[in-house]
Nucleic acid binder design. Sequence first.
RNA 1: GGCCCGGUAGCUCAGCUGGAUAGAGCAUCAGCCUUCUAAGCUGAGGGUCAUUGGUUCGAAUCCAAUCCGGGUCACCA
Length: 663
Amino acid sequence: MSLIYNIQSSVIKSLSSLFGQEFTESDFQINQTKPEFEGDYTVVLFSLLKKTGKAPQALGEELGNYLVAEYPGLFEKYNIIKGFLNLAVPDSYWLELLNTYYDNLSFGRQAANGRKVMVEYSSPNTNKPLHLGHLRNNFLGWSVAEILKAQGFEVLKSSIVNDRGMHICKSMIAWEKWGNGETPESSGKKGDHLVGDFYVMFENELRRQAAELKVREDAGDISHYDEAQQHKLIELQQHRNKLLEDKGYSAVAENLAQLDAGAHKERQELESRKEYKIIKEKIAKIDAEMMETRRGATPIMAEVKQMLIDWEAGKPEVIDLWKMMNGWVYKGMDVTYKLIGSDFDKTYYESNTYLLGKDIVQEGLEKGIFFRKPDSSVWIDLTADGLDEKLVLRKDGTSVYITQDIGLARQKHDEYNIDKSIYVIGNEQNYHMKVLRLICQKLGLSYADDIYHLSYGMVELPEGAKMKSREGTVVDADDIVAEMEREAQAKTEELGKVKDFTPGELAELYHIIGLGALKFFLLRVDPKNTIEFDPTKTIDFVGFTAPFIQYNYARIKSVLRKNELQKNIHLPLDFLPLEKELIASIEKYPVIIRQASEELNPSAIALYIYDIAKTFSSFFAEHSIANAETAEKRELRLRISTMTANVIKSGMRLLGIDVPERM
RNA sequence: GGCCCGGUAGCUCAGCUGGAUAGAGCAUCAGCCUUCUAAGCUGAGGGUCAUUGGUUCGAAUCCAAUCCGGGUCACCA
C-alpha cells in the first residue's frame, strides 16, 4: 500500500482511539510537506478542531506523539507550525522501499481487478488521411487503455470505422470524374492521401458550383432550387435584410464605407463595436447557411445522393468502387497506425452497424419513450432534461447517427459483457454523447450508466483557426511525424553523441525521439483543454518534453552500463536531500497511476514522469554516482538510479512513448 | 437566445474534492563542461490567479452575477 494511504489510515485510527469517535478521510487533509518545512507529509489540523474540541497546537502534539509512538516504522518525528502537523518518515522506510522495488519493472502496476473496460478511439472516416487532431485522439485512447491496464482492468481497444456515407461518396464521385483510373500504385501516393486528394477536388468543384448558383440567384434565377430550398433561401434573405437595417449595424457600416483605405485605427475602432460585431456574426452565420443550401442544390451533390442510394441498394459497380477505394485507405492508414503505434482489439465498420438500433427504437416506441410525428418520423422528447427533441428515425424509416450508436452500444455490451464503455471523442460531440447516454437511460438499458464520454479539446491553429480537411488547413499526421523525425535527426547530428550507430539504429532513434516529442506534446495537456499548435514553430525538444525525459533515461543507462550493482552491500541509513526527494517521488508512482486511471487522464502521468526526470537531472548534476564518497553511497545511488530509470520507462510506456538506451 | 467548457507570468501550461510565501517549461538576463551524456545544472527578473460580490479561521480553488473566448443546439458524422 502506498505511503499516503498508510498515513491516512494510521491518522484515522489514531484519532479514533484518542478521541473515541469515528473519523474518515474526509475529516482532514494530508498534503505533501512544503520543501521549506521539515517533514514529508502534513496533516492539516484546522478541520479537526471542532470535532476534537482542541486547539491546533495541543491537537498536533497529542496526535504527533501518538503517531510516533504507535507507528515508529512510519513516523520518526513531527513538528507543528501554525495549524500544520508535519510528519517525518524515517529513512529506513525509504530504504526498504528502494531495496524491495528498485529492480522491479512492474512497480506501480496493480493485479487484475476482474473488471472489463472497452476504450473506443481513433474511429476514422475513410475519405481522408489522419491529421493532428486524430493523433490527439489516438494517443489519448491508447494511453488511457494502457493506464487502465496498469490499474488492473482488462481492456479492449476498439474503433468504429466510418466507412460509408456522404463523405466517402464524395471522394468516389471525384475519382470517377477526374481520376483517370489513378491508383496508389500508379500515382505513388499513399492510399489514404490519394482518396483525400479526391475529396478536396470534390470540395473545390462543389464550391465552384455553389458559387455559380449564387450568381444566378443574384440575377434572379432560382429555378435550380426545389420548393423547400427556395423557401429557405427567401426566408434567410429576409432575415438577413432585416439585420442589415439594424441601426447599430447600418450606422457603423456606413461610417466604414466612408473611411479611406489607410484609416486602420478608425476602422478597428468601428469594427470592434459590440452591437456591430454581434450582427456581423449573425450575418456570417446566415451567409453560411445560405451557402450550405446552395451546396445541397448543386448538380454534383445530386450525384452524391444518388450514389448513396445506389450504395444502399447494393449496386455492384458502386460497391466495387467503394471497396476498392476503402481498401486503399485501409492500407494507407495501417501504415500510419503502425508508425504511431495504435492498435485495436476490435474494429467495427459502420457499413455493418448502420442499421443497428432500429429494433431498439421500435421497443422504445412501444414503451412510449419515443413518439411518432405526423410525417411518421420518430423522436424523443428530452426537453424535461434541459435538452431538445431529438430525431431517432427519419420519416422514410432510415436511421440517423444516434440510432446506430444506440445499437452499437448494445452490441458492445452483449458481445463482451463490459463493465464500462469509454468513448474517446472530441468535445464538439459533448451534446451528442449526452443525448446518447440519456436515451439509453430512458430506455432502461442496463449498461446506460457505464457509457462514459472521454471528451477532449480540439487541436487548433494560431488565433483559434480550425483544422478542416475540406479546406486543406490540416496538419497531416504522416507529415508531422516525418518532420519530428527530421528535427530529431538534426538535433542528434548536431550533438554528435551517437556517431557509432548503424543507419538502422539511427533511424530507430530518430523515430523514438521525434514521435516521443509529438506524443508528449499532445498528452501533457489536460485532455479537456484545447491545444494550440503553431505549424510555423517546431515542437520543443528541451524543457518539459519527452526528449528531456528520454535523455535522462539514457544518462542513467549510460552510468549503469559502466557501473554494476553490488547486491550484497549494506546501504547507509541517511540520505542527502536530493536522494530522499527522488525516492519520495518514485514512491508516489502507484498513486499517480491510480489517479490517472480514475481521471482517465494521461497528462497526470506526463507531469509526474517529467517531475521525476527533472529531480534526477538535478541530482545527477549535484552528486556523482560512480565516484560517490563511499562504496555504500555509490550502491545507494545506483539503486536509486535504477529505480528512477524503471519508473521513467514504465511511465513513458503508459503514454506510448519509448525510451532509448543511448541518445 | 438555451445548454456545456475555458480565462493563472510576455507565450505554452500545472495547481481547482478550500490550507503555509501561486508553480513548471519557453523566452530574457547572469553564472556553470580536465570527473558518470551540457537535449543539462544553478540563480535572477517576471503575477490585481478575467471582474465584482458572497461563503469561510483561510479562496486561484466553492457559490452568484458580469465580461471575454470556444463548442453545441442537423433528417451530417
